[in-house]
Each structure stands twice: as C-alpha cells, then as structure tokens.
Amino acid sequence: MTEPIIVIVIVYLFLGYCRLLDRTKHQRRENVIYIGALLLSFYLSFLFITGTDGFNLNDLLDWPFEMPARGILKFFTS
C-alpha cells in the first residue's frame, strides 16, 4: 500500500507544479471542469491505493451495452 501512495503523491505534486506554471486568468468554467477532473481523480486514486474494485468507467459503459454485446458474441460463436 505504501508504494501506490508514494506514486499518487508524486503524480499530484507534478500536477500541482504544472498548474503553477500554467497559472493564467482562468475562466470560471475552466476551474469548475479542472476541479471536477481532480475530484474524479481523487476517487480513482482511492480505488488504486486501496485496491478495491469500485464503480468505474468500464462499468458505466458496460451497463447499457453489455447485453447486446453478449448477444452479438453468442450469434458469432454459436
């Protein structure tokens, strides 16, 4: 668990450094989306550090399309 924490800390330090370098007058919308992306990354970092199998992007995309995809696979393999 220590190694993933170190990796994540390094990644966020790197990201923070880049944000400082890019510091210009950002629009409000830009800040909102940037913070949104960061919040999502915090959730994913939590999953990565703890090694838990939480809800993820593949689950979101599988939800509406998995049944038809399995149906097509069944057609081709039957």
Partner: peptide, 19 residues
C-alpha cells in the same frame, strides 16, 4: 469551450493513468 488547452493535458493524462 475551454480556451486554455495546455492546462487540461495533465489532468486528462492523470485520469487515463488512473483508469
């Protein structure tokens, strides 16, 4: 409609990394 393209490169890379 975001004007600063450079600012989003690393957050996007971070998301790809974590995904």
């Amino acid at each position: 409609n975001l004007s600063d393209k450079r600012a989003f490169v690393f957050p996007n890379a971070l998301l790809v990394f974590l995904f």
